[in-house]
Simulated scan of single mutants.
Amino acid sequence: MRMVMDAWMRTRPDDPSPVLASKRSHAPSKTAMATWNSLNERQQVYLGEIMRDDRMTETEMWMRRVQRLPVPRAVEWRRLPLALKAAPAVVGYTRLQERLRRRGVHDPGAGQTVHALQRRGLLIITEDSVEHPAVGEVGRVLVQLSRRGRAAAHAGLDEPREPDPPTHLLSEWLWGVLARVAAAEPAGLKDDQLAGRSLFFIGVGYRNKAGGQPSRGLVDSVPVMASEGTHVAEYRWRLTQLGRRHVVEYLDIYREVYPSVPTTGIDALAADST
């Protein structure tokens, strides 16, 4: 499938890319179920309500796209506000706190619970500050499900595991490499800043093993001439035509699937292609 999709995009630059079909959802894994069962009741409530709030936020973002409204990056909106560092009597409760209160779980012990989930690798906790009309600038605690936490919540709530990324997409590791090259366009990434096994999967002229399939050919080492044009001054890694189209076509999907991979500066590629 990867070879066919790449060939299509390479030879039909003016045609729309085929729609990617996701793999079917799978039943919860035994590991995810064991992780859920290892949590106490309070931790299970927290993890379940955080997942439900995450899903509601995801629906809201989808509705904004349908209405052609601005949508922040997934790495931003998946950080869900848990609490404001001020008296609730003054600043009120966050939507997530309201969810928990409806389940009979109130604020005392919230910090211990979410940090216990973070130590297990199920949550990511961050902090920032926002302007509140009643108190001005106030600190805020945000929580984000890790992939392991999401799988455990799906298992515990008897829901199917989320489908795997489409076959045509790169792994999180390879997407991170490709995103670095894309962010360095148009100058390119210095030759010594890209090395290792990734080239055997995305570099032009490489194979991942003897007799194996050729790499995807998404990046290439390009000579950069000296200012007087007499010799090659250096080599830089740049996106191939296929690599550029791959990034432009699937940037939004990659951001959804791998929200932790930095993609700052890549949006200019999409703007240049329109």
Score class of each variant (00 low, 15 high):
48 G>E: 01
37 N>C: 06
269 L>G: 05
221 S>M: 12
117 L>T: 00
65 R>L: 08
128 D>Q: 05
61 M>K: 12
54 D>Q: 10
173 W>H: 11
27 A>M: 13
30 K>T: 10
91 V>F: 09
173 W>N: 06
179 A>V: 06
124 I>C: 04
212 G>P: 10
271 A>R: 15
209 K>V: 05
250 Y>C: 00
240 T>Q: 05
188 G>A: 05
173 W>V: 08
78 R>D: 00
23 K>Q: 15
254 Y>G: 10
57 T>M: 14
82 L>N: 03
125 I>R: 13
124 I>S: 13
71 V>K: 00
273 S>D: 14
212 G>R: 09
39 L>H: 06
230 T>D: 14
48 G>D: 06
201 F>D: 12
47 L>A: 01
160 P>L: 12
132 H>L: 09
4 V>M: 13
178 L>I: 11
88 P>M: 03
223 P>D: 01
229 G>S: 14
181 V>Q: 02
88 P>Q: 09
79 R>Q: 12
88 P>Y: 03
134 A>E: 13
240 T>L: 10
87 A>T: 10
38 S>C: 00
246 H>M: 14
90 V>W: 08
19 V>R: 15
28 P>E: 02
261 V>D: 01
44 Q>M: 08
91 V>C: 09
63 M>V: 02
110 A>V: 09
251 L>N: 04
219 V>K: 03
64 R>F: 03
240 T>P: 04
146 S>V: 02
23 K>R: 14
139 G>D: 10
248 V>P: 01
271 A>I: 15
24 R>S: 10
45 V>W: 04
259 P>C: 04
63 M>C: 07
256 E>A: 03
